[in-house]
Write a protein that binds this DNA or RNA. Structure first.
Length: 424
RNA sequence: GUGGCCGUAGCUCAGUUCGGUAGAGCCCCGCGUUGUGGUCGCGGUUGUCGCGGGUUCAAAUCCCGUCGGUCACCCCA
């Protein structure tokens, strides 16, 4: 294919119907469930002051290397949001809604990454956050909302991985133990892991490079270093999941890339995707974030789910197909086109999805369009019908053939006989 | 960011090994019925062979660069 003059920038893509309808339906399904669980939508700007994201961790790659940062004409330092939790917490700090505050969101995010299947520079997430409580039941509610959503869209091959990362009272000691252990074995680590070790020892546990595995397997575990309080919290969360019969796997090496996470962290892996991009969602507790963004100390927990990746997983499982938005009626007008305008408008005003042909094409050509549109009915109008004030109503999918009816009875007739799109 | 693979009509792809100047199926358009789709038959349109440069009498085919996609690492949704 010859390269067009312009194309969507690298790592971005156009989504056309029906896939776009499918994406919209997925988000609508999430919205319905979030609202049903007491969450209200929060809509934040697509760009923020750069500092909002810098606070989420200099050691975080998405902050240090992947941000679309820029200056506006007044020299303000801004960035396209690389994730949404920081924006939501910033909004919380700015507006101080009563707690516990439950918010859900959806929208695009931007990271300057090397694109791959399921990895885009602009991608869409849906998510939810609860701020103002560190009750383990909040963690459970958050996880359950995500889990039940996967169920609702028909994804069955999803694994929930759980871990606790400790908190500021116990993590430093663990980090020290881990760091000294890794330093002892650093000669056997890959070069990349040695570099990571200096920036964030925790992240070394994430390495998938084979030479590192043996060392990582024998590394000290966070689970053994949790304070009683943090361990009890985690225990309460897992018990809560069990009470709801939500299956999970403990994953002591689950680290996650955002530095603000502490205590509960979790990730959802789509087992139907065999690529490395199988994480279709993740989240955790970020009790220190509100304070870092200049607000009062406020615990928080939330998750974000990748819309594009969920849809890839749905493809792999044959789940959540695009909704059928075909017109119910296609108007075929061989008198010039004005009657099609009038009839389609009338049908649409009554909530009937209607399409029509253009360019005064032959009846044969318009019938072909009618068929391809997926419409259940064709409404035909020619010179004879026009003269007599009638239309011909033709059943395109069933065996009702065609009849001539009074033009003024058309709407009533169609409303009385719902379309049977796609049905034989 | 590092490394591998791929890039031919709107779509899926053949042709690239051993250079000779572009093909199939689908889609689309028309006709078979000057008022009727889906099946069938007949006919037809469509390509700077991703882009740029080089080698050659000659390049889709070989070489270099570049852009885009993809896979692994990385990162993560």
């Amino acid at each position: 294919m010859a390269t067009p003059l312009f194309q969507a920038p690298k790592g971005t893509r156009d989504v056309l119907a029906p896939e776009s309808e499918r994406q919209r339906a997925l988000i609508a399904c999430f919205a319905e469930r979030a609202i049903g669980a007491g969450f209200g939508q929060v809509v934040t700007p697509i760009f923020e002051e750069l500092g909002v994201f810098e606070r989420i961790g200099e050691a975080t790659e998405l902050v240090s290397k992947e941000m679309y940062a820029f200056e506006d004409k007044d020299g303000r330092r801004l960035a396209l949001r690389p994730e949404l939790t920081a924006s939501v917490v910033r909004a919380f700090v700015q507006h101080r809604p009563p707690t516990p505050w439950r918010a859900w969101y959806e929208g695009p995010q931007f990271r300057y990454e090397k694109p791959q299947a399921g990895r885009y520079r602009q991608f869409t997430q849906v998510g939810a956050e609860i701020l103002g409580t560190d009750d383990p039941h909040a963690d459970v509610e958050i996880i359950a909302l995500a889990w039940r959503f996967y169920e609702a869209i028909g994804l069955t091959r999803v694994s929930l991985l759980m871990n606790s990362l400790g908190d500021p009272t116990c993590r430093p000691a663990y980090l020290e133990a881990l760091s000294s252990y890794l330093h002892e074995r650093s000669a056997d680590l890959t070069e990349q892991s040695r570099a990571t070790l200096e920036v964030n020892p925790l992240r070394v546990l994430d390495s998938k490079r084979p030479p590192d595995q043996e060392i990582i397997d024998a590394a000290p575990s966070m689970a053994d270093h949790l304070t009683d309080e943090v361990a009890a919290h985690f225990e309460a969360v897992t018990q809560g999941l069990e009470a709801l019969a939500i299956p999970y796997r403990l994953s002591p090496r689950l680290v996650r890339g955002l530095d603000y996470y502490q205590r509960t962290t979790f990730e959802f892996a789509a087992d139907a995707l065999d690529s490395a991009q199988n994480a279709i969602g993740g989240g955790g507790r970020y009790d220190g974030l509100a304070e870092q963004l200049g607000g009062p100390p406020t615990p928080g927990v939330g998750f974000a789910l990748g819309v594009e990746r969920m849809l890839l997983a749905c493809d792999a499982e044959g789940a959540f197909t695009a909704p059928d938005n075909s017109p119910q009626v296609f108007v075929v007008d061989v008198t010039g086109g004005a009657e099609a305008s009038a009839l389609a408008d009338q049908l649409r005003q009554h909530g009937i999805r209607a399409d029509r042909g253009f360019d005064q094409r032959s009846m044969k050509a318009q019938m072909k369009l009618a068929d391809r549109s997926g419409a259940a009915w064709a409404v035909l109008i020619g010179d004879e019908e026009l003269a007599q004030g009638v239309v011909t109503l033709r059943d395109l999918r069933g065996d009702q053939g065609q009849t001539t009816i009074e033009r003024r009875a058309l709407v009533e007739r169609l409303l009385a006989r719902p379309a049977t799109n796609g049905e034989p």
